[in-house]
């Protein structure tokens, strides 16, 4: 079980969190013309990197904040966590 440092609450066990996918995906702006390809990439296409991955986790059983986690997908090492408005 992973041990994740919530930037708001501190170190907590994985079972307090929900996984939220790739943290680098940016939603196209509202009311902007978006090509099929761009939209398709946003909705469906995700990289599955081996190694460092910036991802979102949601502290659902804690402060209910979404957070950024930089994790190694092979070793599960967590390098850094940050608030969503911070750079990681």
């Amino acid at each position: 079980m992973l041990h994740i440092k919530c930037p708001h609450c501190g170190l907590r066990s994985q079972n307090e969190f929900a996984y939220g996918g790739d943290g680098t995906v940016k939603r196209p702006e509202l009311n902007k013309k978006v090509s099929d390809k761009e939209w398709d990439t946003f909705v469906y296409l995700r990289k599955s990197p081996r190694g460092k991955h910036t991802e979102l986790w949601h502290h659902v059983s804690g402060c209910r904040q979404w957070i950024k986690v930089e994790r190694d997908t092979v070793t599960h090492e967590i390098f850094k966590t940050a608030k969503v408005n911070e750079d990681i």
Partner: peptide, 9 residues
């Protein structure tokens, strides 16, 4: 969770 996602991120 969905609403929180859009508001926070």
């Amino acid at each position: 969770s969905h609403l929180e996602y859009y508001l926070q991120i």
